[in-house]
């Protein structure tokens, strides 16, 4: 059995974050949420992490993908995420698992940001569209 207390705190925090997200305009992501537009310009990708802010080590993340044109959620994508440190010319040894959760949400498990620094999440989208986005996270 793993430590459940942090889990409860994280759950509460994330519920709050998600509630705030629902009230926010697409142009202004809630505090702590990273938002980028995909390479094609067609998709908006918001990233929330758990814990928030992300820590050195293993994190979870949720990508929320919407159509830039109308803000509707983009489901049905196959998503692959590779954590990468460009300046260090390497990524993490762990390949995260991505699971579709509906409503344009894709859950990323085992995001191992094992060292401090500037990490980019190389997110490749395939299926109905082929696209790419690179939201960034800084680990103190």
């Amino acid at each position: 059995m793993r430590d459940n207390a942090p889990t409860a705190r994280l759950a509460s925090g994330l519920v709050l974050a998600l509630s705030c997200a629902a009230c926010s305009s697409p142009a202004a992501p809630p505090s702590g949420v990273v938002a980028v537009t995909s390479a094609s310009g067609a998709l908006r990708v918001e990233v929330r992490t758990s814990p928030q802010p992300p820590v050195r080590g293993t994190n979870g993340a949720e990508l929320t993908v919407t159509n830039v044109a109308d803000g509707t959620p983009r489901d049905g994508l196959t998503v692959a995420v590779v954590p990468w440190m460009a300046a260090m010319n390497h990524g993490s040894s762990t390949i995260p698992t991505v699971t579709a959760a509906g409503g344009g949400r894709y859950e990323v498990a085992d995001l191992d940001l094992f060292m401090p620094g500037h990490w980019v999440l190389r997110a490749d989208f395939s299926g109905p569209v082929q696209d790419h986005a690179e939201p960034a996270l800084d680990i103190p």
Binding site: T7, A11, G57, A109
Partner: peptide
């Protein structure tokens, strides 16, 4: 955000594996 990952462990319990009381 409560689905299970490939290991059958919940998202939160996996992601919450930071230095907490047990770790300390």
């Amino acid at each position: 955000m409560s689905s299970m990952n490939a290991h059958g462990v919940s998202f939160f319990s996996r992601s919450g594996r930071y230095l907490g009381p047990i770790g300390a």
